[in-house]
Amino acid sequence: MAQKKIGKQTVKFQNPPSIISTASIVGPKEGEGPLKEYFDIILEDDLYDQDSWEKAESKMLEDAMKMAIKNAKLLEEQIEYILAGDLLNQIISSSFAVRQLQRPYFGLYGACSTMTESLSLGSMIVDGGFADNVLCATSSHFCTAERQYRFPLELGNQRPFTSQWTVTGAGAAVISANGSGPYITHVTTGKIVDPGIKDVNNMGAAMAPAAADTIIQHFEDTGFNVDDYDLIITGDLSGIGKPIAEELILTKGIDISTIYKDCGIEIFDGKRQDTHAGGSGCGCSASVFAGYLYKELKKGKYNRILLVSTGALHSPVSANQGESIPGIAHAVTISNVIS
């Protein structure tokens, strides 16, 4: 009998692990956005002194990991597991980033939902008593994602209104059995929900039902009310997906509108930065969480938040073959107090 499982899809930790440090690195465009003061490092150049975009992304992730370990005042040897993932084929950014660190490593793929996927699994490892210190990290890069999923950078095409801007950024967090919070108290793991959207330029709409499903399930499993949270924040539903998720949740009688935000909307200034629907990518919720959310939790502006990273699990191959886009969302409750 699983003692920590509550409801259908939720885990309630007995000894909630603490997030003892984070680190965030973002690209120049994100560094001009409304959250700029929260990021630890803002790159001056997207290439980060490397000779390819892929190497730049990997370096960003590696540096974010090392910085998070340093901020936690730990030695690299004290990290018992690394859980990391990214958007590139065969998650090369992550595997190459951890190559230097020489620590046990699980590579994850959950598309843009990877940040909460790694936080979920990391917390389970710590609460399960398998490790004391686990490093969770993800990254994405506009230029690497663009060439893999869309068109060459210099092609003179127009981006549709529904399209989103892949965030150049990396976020890392150290989860520990010892620490004074913020704590990860609950984890609701999402199912794949596929509403049949085939337009790869409208991922927000493809992921919104998955986010709504996970959030509704979370409330059902935990018995929480909307009032129990200061903030519910989805990963990258952005301008199109956010209102849809809000309405879908409202159909179940839950009104989250007053405390609901989306990382993809927060990270850019939609009017000034011409990002169309908003930000996306693993690095979007990772950098917003590791930068903005963690710091505001520490300061006490927020006391309990629900972070719901959302992923679109398609590939260029599946899209060309006319497959619809399956969505997924994982929710993590991060709280300053253990309830």
Partner: peptide
């Protein structure tokens, strides 16, 4: 959300998309 009808949902999504100028 699994009982979502993809045809209705696509119609609903289309009503949410701003029209290009």
């Amino acid at each position: 959300m699994n009982n979502i009808n993809s045809k209705d949902y696509r119609k609903y999504v289309n009503s949410k998309i701003p029209k290009p100028s």
